[in-house]
Amino acid sequence: MNINLEMIIQATINFFIFYFILYKFVFKKTIAIMDSRKAEVEKSFAKVKEQEDRAILLKEQYDKDVINYKNEGLKLVESYKRKADQVYGEIIEESKKEASNIKDRALKEIAKEKEKARVEIKEEIVDLSLQLSTRILEKEISEDKHRELIDEFIAKVGS
C-alpha cells in the first residue's frame, strides 16, 4: 500500500475549503436558526412557568376567598339565627303579657259580673220579699197558706 502524500494534502485542503464554505454559508445560518429556536423555546417555557406561577397564586387567592366567604356566610347565618331567636323570644314574651292581660281582664270582668249578679239577686230577693209581704198583708193567711207562700218564695229564689 502506497500512501500518496500529495493526495492526502489535496484532500485535506479540499476538506478545509469545503468546511470554510459550509461554515460561511450554512453553519452560521443554521446556528442562528437553532439559537433563535432555542430562544423561542426558552421564552415559551418561561411564559408557561410564569402562567403556572400566576395560576398557583390565583388558586391560593381563590382558596382564601372561598374560606373567607364560607366564614362570612357562617357568621351571617349565626347572626340571623340570633336575631330570629331574639324575635322569637320577644314574640313569646309579648304573647305571655297579652295572655296575662286578657286573663286579668277576664278575671275583672268575671268579678264585675259576679258582683252584678249578686246585686241583682239581692234586688230580686228584696222585690220578692216585698211582694210576699204585700200578699201576706193583703190577705189574712192561715198557717198552711203562709207555708205555701214561703215555699213558693223559696222556689222562686232557688230558680
Rank of each mutant, 00 (worst) to 15 (best):
D144H: 12
D65S: 07
E123R: 11
V126P: 02
I92D: 04
N68F: 07
E90S: 07
S95R: 12
A46R: 09
E50W: 03
I92M: 01
F20Q: 05
I91D: 09
S36N: 08
I56A: 03
L137A: 06
D85V: 09
N71D: 08
K96C: 07
E94Y: 12
S36M: 01
V157F: 01
G89E: 09
K75R: 12
V126I: 12
I33K: 06
E90G: 02
K29G: 00
K29M: 00
E120Q: 07
S129P: 03
K96M: 14
K96R: 15
F15V: 04
L137P: 03
E115Y: 05
Q51A: 05
N14D: 14
K24Y: 10
N71K: 05
V119K: 06
N68L: 05
D85M: 13
Q10M: 01
K116C: 01
I31W: 10
K28C: 06
F27G: 01
S133G: 14
V41E: 07
R118V: 09
Q86V: 02
F18W: 14
A32S: 10
I125V: 04
F153I: 02
A32L: 06
K139A: 00
S129Y: 10
A46G: 05
D53S: 09
F25R: 01
V126W: 03
I31M: 04
V157C: 01
K103W: 06
D65W: 01
E72A: 13
V87P: 06
F20P: 00
F15R: 11
E72D: 12
Q61F: 10
N71P: 03
E138Q: 14
K43R: 04
R54W: 08
L130A: 08
I3K: 00
I17T: 07
T12I: 08
E124P: 00
I56M: 02
D65Q: 07
Q10H: 05
E115K: 03
L5F: 13
V48W: 14
Q61I: 11
M1P: 13
F153C: 01
E98T: 15
A155P: 10
D85L: 13
A111Q: 13
N2Y: 07
K75W: 08
A11C: 03
K139E: 06
E50M: 03
E124D: 02
E78G: 09
I8M: 11
N2I: 05
D35K: 08
N4P: 06
E94A: 15
L128Y: 15
I21P: 01
I92T: 05
D35W: 00
A155F: 15
F18H: 09
K139H: 03
E152I: 04
Y88F: 08
E52V: 07
Y19L: 11
L128K: 05
K43T: 01
L137V: 05
E6I: 00
R82Y: 11
D65F: 04
D144Q: 14
I17G: 00
I136N: 06
G158M: 05
Q51P: 02
L57G: 00
E52S: 06
A155S: 14
E113D: 12
R54N: 11
N14K: 11
I154S: 13
E78V: 02
S95A: 10
K29W: 02
S79H: 12
S95I: 10
Y88T: 03
E109H: 12
I141C: 14
S95D: 11
I13V: 09
K83E: 10
Y23I: 11
I21R: 14
A99Y: 15
S95V: 08
K122V: 10
Y88S: 06
